[in-house]
């Protein structure tokens, strides 16, 4: 029941995102025909051919409904610029981006878990907290540039750009993962601190549990709740970060496509990227809500 309701609201969010993006692009200056012509030849004949080919003579409402109808069936239209179906354009670029985002997410989460659990002593904790604050407040592209100059230019350990082999993935993934690890470590540590102050921890210790077991079996699970709620934020940060990082490291991916589409007013591609982002967001947030239900039985009641 609760799952169905979540999926229902997710669909509404998707529709709102698609519509909002459609309206925003409709309100943007310049006509669709201009965008499609781009730098090509511009004669009245070509113009009328374009209007006919893309059915641009229909009222805006009909075009909107037609767009929604086709989008619901998985047809995202054709790119004005590349003259190819948007699905193919995005599909080719999706995997490099997903790969980068996934590796960065796993890396960031793992790093945060390890740091939050291991830096419990006052001294290590102070060092770690400071490092986290620095990472959180540094713009990702700066982290990327620093990593590039040290590990690629000076030490020559990793390729400077491109997407060939696992080595090329290391620096961009680390760049994306560090700020995520910074935020998550702070949230996890705070959660662990709070859990360790609870009476049930005294009970657990009074059972003869080792400190490590108290952390792993009791405190960490409590600390996961606020961290899991950040899953939606994590997705947003990754998608936003990827656009910049792909440019810094010269990697193919959604970031490059989005940048190109926005600058050349390639409406179908921009719309598809917006809808895809909203989709990722909805999926992640739904997953986060369901994960909270799994972690905390007290939430399952209503």
């Amino acid at each position: 029941m609760i799952v169905l309701r979540r999926i229902g609201t997710g669909l509404v969010v998707l529709w709102v995102a698609a519509t909002a993006a459609y309206l925003a692009l409709l309100a943007a200056p310049g006509s669709t025909v201009d965008s499609i012509i781009g730098d090509g030849a511009d004669t009245p004949l070509i113009r009328s051919q374009i209007v006919q080919e893309w059915h641009l003579d229909r009222p805006a409402v009909v075009q909107y409904v037609d767009y929604l109808w086709r989008a619901a069936h998985g047809d995202l239209g054709r790119s004005y610029l590349l003259q190819r179906p948007v699905r193919d354009v995005l599909g080719a670029q999706l995997w490099p981006t997903l790969k980068l985002a996934l590796v960065a997410a796993v890396l960031g989460i793992a790093l945060a878990l390890v740091l939050a659990v291991t830096t419990r002593r006052p001294w290590s904790r102070r060092v770690s907290s400071t490092a986290e604050l620095v990472l959180v407040s540094t713009p990702p592209f700066l982290i990327g540039l620093v990593l590039l100059s040290v590990f690629s230019f000076q030490l020559g350990l990793f390729p400077v750009s491109g997407d060939r082999g696992a080595a090329a993935l290391v620096l961009p993934a680390v760049t994306l993962a560090l700020p995520i690890a910074g935020v998550l470590t702070q949230v996890l540590r705070d959660g662990i601190d709070r859990a360790l102050d609870e009476p049930f921890v005294i009970t657990a210790r009074a059972r003869g549990l080792r400190e490590r077991a108290v952390l792993a079996r009791h405190a960490l699970r409590h600390a996961l709740l606020p961290a899991v709620s950040l899953l939606g934020w994590l997705g947003g940060t990754l998608l936003g970060g990827v656009v910049i990082i792909e440019t810094v490291f010269g990697r193919p991916g959604l970031g490059q496509v989005t940048l190109q589409a926005v600058t050349s007013e390639d409406m179908p591609v921009v719309l598809a990227v917006v809808v895809f982002s909203a989709f990722a967001y909805v999926v992640l947030n739904t997953a986060a809500d369901l994960a909270c239900l799994v972690i905390d039985p007290r939430l399952r009641r209503s």
Binding site: P199, F200, I202, T203, A206, G208, H218, P297
Partner: peptide
């Protein structure tokens, strides 16, 4: 101490709602 706790002495605290781990 670990063997004393639970093995030699059991501890019961005030309110079990917070003295037992609510997630388990």
């Amino acid at each position: 101490w670990r063997r004393v706790r639970g093995g030699f002495a059991g501890l019961v605290l005030q309110d079990a709602l917070v003295s037992l781990d609510p997630l388990r």
